[in-house]
């Protein structure tokens, strides 16, 4: 059976095509301001990547904050369920999945078969999502992809007082003015942000392996901050951003 999962996120729209239980194609485009167009583009990219024709896809499922724009989907899967299934697909031993995307953060406790047992969520506030790190990157004039590696260079802990991304920006500017080294500032940003996600994880309970998915999973500095605070190893799949799309495609198989 061949299915597709499309995750229309706040920043990127991702498509995953699954054939007989394996990922065979992926597509990712910036969501921008036209979600419908982004959905079609990422879907076409995934088809091309898989070398599969549109007609061969038996079922398409949609998920993500822009899921209502995924008109080609026959079913909509909620994000919690999608990341639970996706997380379980990448790491079958995982019992806690943290998902940090551009605009939302969540922690989900899952069963052996990848079903949702509990979840805690942080939404509608940039302080607990990737947008926080992005906004700080802008204030520091540092490209997002450099933030993680720079953070790893710091061995100094500086507490941040501001919780809100807007207020944290002024705090960061203050740190720049007081000549704090850039890696230390960036680590402070990651530590602050990680503490919010760690708190969500603690609320669902740290069980067995913790895995991290979502776009922020690409950021090694953030993962390191989380590991320090949770005192445990965090597993990150090779393509953390595709977990929800993969999960949606898996649900399509299961519910076929």
């Amino acid at each position: 059976m061949i299915t597709a999962g499309i995750d229309c996120g706040a920043k990127n729209t991702k498509t995953v095509i699954i054939k007989e239980g394996h990922i065979v194609g992926k597509g990712k485009v910036l969501t921008g301001f036209d979600q419908t167009e982004a959905v079609l583009k990422s879907f076409e990219e995934a088809l091309k990547n898989a070398g599969i024709r549109k007609e061969d896809i038996q079922k398409i499922n949609g998920t993500g904050s822009g899921k209502s724009s995924i008109r080609i989907a026959s079913d909509i899967v909620n994000e919690i369920k999608a990341i639970a299934k996706g997380g379980c697909y990448f790491f079958p031993g995982a019992r806690t999945v943290a998902d940090v995307g551009a605009e939302e953060g969540r922690a989900v406790k899952i069963s052996e078969s990848g079903n949702v047992e509990d979840f805690a969520i942080n939404e509608k506030c940039a302080a607990g999502a990737g947008a926080f790190i992005e906004a700080m990157g802008r204030a520091l004039e540092t490209p997002l992809e450099d933030m993680g590696p720079l953070s790893l260079k710091s061995d100094k802990e500086i507490p941040m007082n501001a919780q809100c991304a807007i207020f944290a920006e002024s705090e960061v500017v203050g740190l720049i003015h007081s000549k704090t080294p850039l890696p230390d500032i960036i680590r402070a940003i990651h530590d602050a942000m990680a503490s919010r996600i760690v708190s969500l994880i603690r609320r669902v309970g740290v069980n067995n392996d913790v895995i991290m998915v979502g776009g922020v999973g690409y950021n090694p500095g953030f993962i390191r901050s989380m590991e320090r605070q949770l005192n445990t190893k965090i597993h990150v799949p090779d393509h953390p951003e595709f977990a929800a799309a993969a999960g949606a495609a898996i649900v399509a198989v299961e519910e076929a």
Partner: peptide, 9 residues
């Protein structure tokens, strides 16, 4: 976040 430990989901 501070009260999280006393308020499991």
């Amino acid at each position: 976040y501070e009260c999280g430990p006393c308020k499991p989901v």
